[in-house]
Each structure stands twice: as C-alpha cells, then as structure tokens.
Design a protein around this nucleic acid. Structure first.
Lengths: 242, 242
DNA sequence: TGCGCTCTGTGCTCTAACGTACACAGCCTA
DNA sequence: TAGGCTGTGTACGTTAGAGCACAGAGCGCA
C-alpha cells in the first residue's frame, strides 16, 4: 500500500490502523503559487497535509510589510490552530511553491485529535517543532544579516522540495524575508560569486549545499536538529520515499 | 475557596473537580530575578504555574547574543514542551521579575494532559496564544524600531504585573530585546520626555498607559487580542483577582 | 564622609539595510 | 522584428542601529 497521501510524512508516521481510518476523508487538492490557504483571522474549514510543495506562514502588517514565520512542507500540516483550540489565527498561509495536499475537514480532524493516542501525539510533536522554527525566525530576524537569512531560507525550502531548484523570483523571496528586493539581489550575487548557487530569472539552483550550510547562521541547524529530534519517524519516512 | 494557586489564571479557569485533583501535587516555589527556570536543551522536571512575577522565554546564540521570544505570567504556564511531546526545547526560560509559582511534576502533568477534557484544552489554548506572541515577536524584530519594541515590551510586562512599576535595569531590558543598552536608554529618554514613563536606576514607572498604547506598534494589540480571544476565561479571572 | 560599585547619559564612528531611481536583460507576443 | 513586460543589476543618499568609549549620577558600604 503506497497511497500518495503517505508521501506526507506526518501521515506516513501514523500507525496503519489510524491511517486507514483517516484516509477515506482525505481529499486531494492542488494549489498554485500564491494561493492563500488561510487568510488572517479567517475561519479554518480544513487542515492540509502537503505531499509536495511548500506553504508559508506569513504575517502582514497594517503598513503592508510582510514577514515569513515558518515554512511547511510534506513533513507537516497546515492549520495547527484547529486542534490547538484557537479555531483561527491572525497570520496568513500562502503557497510558496506549487503544492499538492490532502485536506481533512475540521470536524474530522478534531474528532481524530480527541481520540488521543498516536494521532494526537504526532500532531502535537509537529506543532512543537513548528514553534521552534517560528522562534528561531524571531532570533534570526533580530541578529542575522540578509545573506545568512537567505541561506537559511534556501536550506529550509530545499529540505522540503525534491531536487535542488527553487522557482522563485527575488521579489518574492524578499517578501518572505521581509527585506528589500535589492538586498536579496546583492546577497544572491555574493552567493553566486562564491559558487554556491546559480540564479536566473525566477529560478535559483543550489550548486553547493555543504557550502551553503557552512555559510548559514546557526538558526538553520537549531531548527533542523529539533525536527530530527522530535520527529524521527519523519526522517525515516523521508529516507524511504526520497 | 481562594487558594493562592488559583491566582494563576490558567488554573483558575479549570473546572473545580479538575483543580482539586491537581492541587495536592502543586508545590509553591519562589524564584528570584535571573533564576534559570529551564536551560536550553535541559530535561524538564516540572512545569510552573506562576502566580506572580514574569518568566521570559529567551534564546541565546553561540555568539552570546540573546533574544526574548515571549513572556509568561500568571496567565500561563512555563514548560509547554512537556505536554507537546518534545520533552525539552532549545530555548531558555529565565525569571524576569521575581516570581512565585506552583510547580507540578512532569509525570503528573502528562497524566492530567492525557485525560483530555478541560485541562488539555486549556493547556493547548494557552499554547496557541503563546505561539501568537512568539511569531509577533518575530514580526516586531523584523519591522519595528527599538522604541516601539520597548513600548510593546513594557505593555506586555505590565499586563502581567500588579501596579505600574517595573524593577528592571536598562541593561537587562536590552538583553531581553536583543539590542544595545544605549538603544534602550535613548528610547526610554524619549518616552520620558513625552511624559509616558519615569525611570530611575532600575525602576521604570509607567505614568501614561494610554499614551504608551498609542505609541506602540500593532504587535502588542495583535497579541493582546489573541490572548483575550482564545482565553476569555483568563480575562474574567483577571477581573476577579485584580 | 569617602570609596567604589552599578546604572545611566552622551558622544563618536562604522555598517547594514532602507528608499528611490534607473538601466539593462531575458522572454513573450504582436 | 519591434514593443512591452517582468525580472535583475547597480548606484546613489539616508537612517537606524552596532560597537566603542567615557563622564556623571545615584546608591551601598566601610
């Protein structure tokens, strides 16, 4: 049994009996770049288990400035506030890289969560990992320069995608990081000079991942280590399915 | 029945039958300013329900720079990673303002959490509010100046303390915000010139709270609104006990 | 009263990032 | 092939904050 939904590592980490109970209520949806999965304060009707692509958690200020808080890929779930009891949340979630996801109605999710056991545990563990990513974003925003943040962002994104290419304009990256587009241009130029990446009109190719990891600030490692520590089942799943 | 532990608003919001089951296992501890409640990556033996004072969630980088992620007072609980399933977390928790708290052994907490019901719900709701505070810190770090961050910090702290005084040197505030001490000095000077605060050797007195709220960035309001929305029981409790 | 400590105020230079502006380059379509 | 659009490169001046240095001010203690 290798259903596509199992490409979501969180679902894949569930015991089979839990998964088969969930599976019939999962519905595949495809979402294009820029698609708003959730709006700030909007009522959440579903949670999403991505099997490909990336969803960004963003906050947009009144003045229109934005800041990415975390990225979510097939290791996780979009919409944790549904089982955390808040129903909604003041941040947005936007598709950052064209995304296929299995969605589950809010009611079904709450029902599953209320059973306790492995489903609940897995969801909570993922949430804690997500918290780590969010607070490390806060740390990085405070103390590290644009270039290091770009490295972190590239690595976090790459971890969630197949291959070594990102289809993403510098403008969009700048919006994610909450910096100027020129800042990204300059940082990308320097990384390209160092032979770590190649970029051209909306595509960034990572040529030297170890080189990037050597240049990134500690924030990436902290987040990565926490994901690996809290969600070892996911790492195994990643190895199995590529 | 007005036990001191009920001054913790999270405990106070529990149904009486849940509270009486918990109460015998709560142990009062007093913690001085600077006391490390949790170290980064350390094993968590207890969770803490503050009844007075403030605990800061901090992250300290390898280079020694620090950044506050959130503050926790009698509205909450210190140590959410214990019931979130991660056991530990890479950030520190430090007493920011002398604190009395009731602590509960890790085992007892997990037992209570596993029962589901109101205890679990309340803990999760609080965690979501905490997530909001953390990501708003990330936003504020990215986009807002030192003065606005100081305003936010003052208001968040004031919400968790009785009275309008903060015993806190500028040096410590700077460490919390992850900025230079001089930056805090300058911001505080400007706020004092505007008649909003008075400060002298380790004590900041807020003279004009509405004035501060007018000058702070939206980050404070976003956090405050989420706490009020997700945890209305806590607001009521706050009204009852002052 | 005097000493020494901590805390605060203020000055400087330096740098990263911002806002703005504009030129060019690749790609698509007419 | 020309025109237009989007994405990228580069160059300003401006500013917030960092790093550093040191003077003064309030407080505790001998």
């Amino acid at each position: 049994m290798h259903l596509p939904a199992l490409q979501n590592q969180l679902l894949a980490a569930l015991p089979p009996e839990d998964y088969v109970r969930l599976a019939p209520r999962l519905e595949l949806v495809r979402m294009k770049l820029g698609h708003p999965v959730y709006e700030s304060g909007g009522a959440l009707q579903h949670v999403y288990f991505p099997v490909s692509g990336i969803v960004s958690m963003l906050f947009v200020t009144k003045a229109g400035a934005s800041a990415e808080l975390a990225v979510i890929g097939r290791e996780g779930i979009v919409g944790v506030s549904l089982f955390m009891g808040g129903e909604t949340t003041p941040n947005r979630c936007v598709v950052q890289s064209a995304c296929e996801a299995y969605r589950l109605p809010a009611l079904a999710l709450r029902e599953e969560f209320a059973r306790g056991g492995p489903v609940q545990l897995q969801l909570l563990k993922y949430t804690q990992a997500l918290i780590t990513q969010i607070f490390q974003t806060a740390v990085c925003n405070r103390h590290h320069g644009v270039e290091q943040q770009l490295c972190r962002w590239l690595l976090l994104s790459l971890d969630r995608l197949a291959g070594n290419q990102l289809k993403m304009t510098q403008e969009l990256i700048a919006n994610m990081l909450g910096v100027r587009r020129q800042g990204v241009t300059e940082a990308a130029r320097d990384l390209e000079k160092a032979g770590l990446i190649h970029h051209a009109r909306g595509t960034i190719t990572v040529l030297d991942r170890p080189g990037l990891e050597a240049r990134v600030c500690e924030c990436y490692a902290v987040v990565r280590r926490e994901y690996d520590r809290i969600l070892p089942a996911l790492v195994q799943a990643a190895h199995q399915s590529g």
